[in-house]
Design a protein around this nucleic acid. Sequence first.
DNA 1: CTGAAAGCGCTTACAG
DNA 2: CTGAAAGCGCTTACAG
Lengths: 351, 351
Amino acid sequence: MDQRSPRSAPKGPGRPVTLRDVARAAGVSVATASKALNDQGRMADETRERVRQAAKTLGFRPNGLAQSLSRQRSFTVGLLTNDTYGRFTLPVMAGIADALVDNGVSVFLCNIEDDPRLAQTHVDAMLEKRVDGIIASGKRIDRHLPVDLSNLGIPVIYAFTEPDPESIGFVSDDEAGARLAVEHLVRLGRRRIAHVTGPSSFRVVHQRAKAYRDVLREAGLEEPEQGVLTGQWTEGWGHEAAGYLFDGIGRPPDAVFCGNDQIARGVVDALRERGRRVPDDVAVIGFDNWEIVAAATRPPLTTVDMNLKDLGREAGLTLLQLVDRQPIEPGIRRLPCRLVVRQSCGTPPGG
Amino acid sequence: MDQRSPRSAPKGPGRPVTLRDVARAAGVSVATASKALNDQGRMADETRERVRQAAKTLGFRPNGLAQSLSRQRSFTVGLLTNDTYGRFTLPVMAGIADALVDNGVSVFLCNIEDDPRLAQTHVDAMLEKRVDGIIASGKRIDRHLPVDLSNLGIPVIYAFTEPDPESIGFVSDDEAGARLAVEHLVRLGRRRIAHVTGPSSFRVVHQRAKAYRDVLREAGLEEPEQGVLTGQWTEGWGHEAAGYLFDGIGRPPDAVFCGNDQIARGVVDALRERGRRVPDDVAVIGFDNWEIVAAATRPPLTTVDMNLKDLGREAGLTLLQLVDRQPIEPGIRRLPCRLVVRQSCGTPPGG
DNA sequence: CTGAAAGCGCTTACAG
DNA sequence: CTGAAAGCGCTTACAG
């Protein structure tokens, strides 16, 4: 298409320069040229240097396909995900890509959209392209991708999605994360803490509710009548729930632990509309640390961050170890969450 | 690692079966086996079928690296982006991936984070892996990625980012998109239409403002004193701007065209707090159709959708044509936007 | 209709 | 210290 500049510069069109060209230019065999460039074997420093120079001036770029073919390693991995618009997967993917790129491996993006056929297509493509391994990631930590990854003959890692038994998976520690939130509220002196969360079909809903109750009990606090309200992961539900909590006849809570930031925003907005001050009258805490909503809420939300990027990074690194045949204990790793303090709960005692 | 099940089933560990194994099993040469499986050349139907059977029962999966090496085509492309958390890039990427996967090509995800060094690293990696082409995508339509893609020797397409001169780029038609919005307002009978938008350092801010003014003029409408308010792309700015528009002494607008959905949400919230009804007293329209904010706004936002996924799909398809050496006219393609009617402007006359 | 051979561009024992 | 040779697993003219 683009035939200008027939110069022999490093870049530009024209048949790419091969190892053979380099060898010829340096006056050595291809074998020697290969070894020189890969720092393999012994040879006169002078020779090695001469080859390097030749490669450089010719703008040699090794053909990765050929390298992979003979090395039996493609320095490439497949990243499967069903989370197109990536609320959760995005940071996970970023972390994975980070870890891998740093180690010279490229990643194939495979969006499978919860479609088993599409998933299989992608897996087949990955296998044909001889990826060194696969990372499966998803939008729900308690659902398995609609594809069987158990007998592929290459290493597989699960990140933020339900892993196969006997495999290796990385997930967030939701119970510990919820503890972080509720303990923060307790520490700030709140005594009547409610919990507004998502649908009970989500496992995290139970894990977080359990932590919530555990912390209340440990603190000697009573669970309000309307202790745990399950609904949707939406602002709308946050609104509605605030109605139940604050428009009733019972004594209203002085703090609300929300299952995600959207719910929290709904609660905060509803509170403002009712003339209740956040955080003075009631403290509200979210979950996810979804910047775009946490930061836009008035006041900005204190919330729990699942450290998804770190989780992705860990997953990527672990896959690499597996590829290098290092023995890794199977099982699920629960990675810690982190509290992000903004203004919706007031200032902590020490700060 | 996983050495169980030494059966010769299609899946599972053990040295992968090669074309040679298939040929042997079918009693033909590798050459014939290859042709049989690729539907190349002439041969007895019976032979072809026999080879196919053998391949099937052995669970043969061609080694893509070897195929690519001899075919001089990797069926792989690189996708460069600087938009990690992907507000805009995400749908574009999804569209690209869609188009490519349908055509049997895999995509390498290259996140470059606005870092020239990282970008070069990725480009080098892509070149070594012999991608058939590259798609550059970004979060800003008026910025070039921090890397030179002009003399790579492989086709390059730009999607939602500033293209090189003489290259092929796909962008949204912001002027036409803005027209859609303002004409909608006019059609609904609004006479005093204001425009609250982002920073004037963005080219789209000027393009949309121009369209806004053009439509007003064409409709014989006057631009209010505070016609165009430039600020940030945030809810906060929407709030603030609403103050300027509605708390002053002048006659307030009866409609606000916002530069994005976040601003629109800020405006709507501010209006509600001032007791002004949307859409009855003032119609508000957004831009981007960012579901998560457009749908959560009360009332849900009427807005302009840039059809980013389609844009991505077009870009992917075009790259494929380029790879196939089809001649394509260089230049920028502006793809149309689409109006998404929800409730923040009221019901259109016909609906 | 089918196969032997060369080739894609590297790497890696193995000789010398 | 260096090179010839085989090999990675395919494809593709070219003979027969």
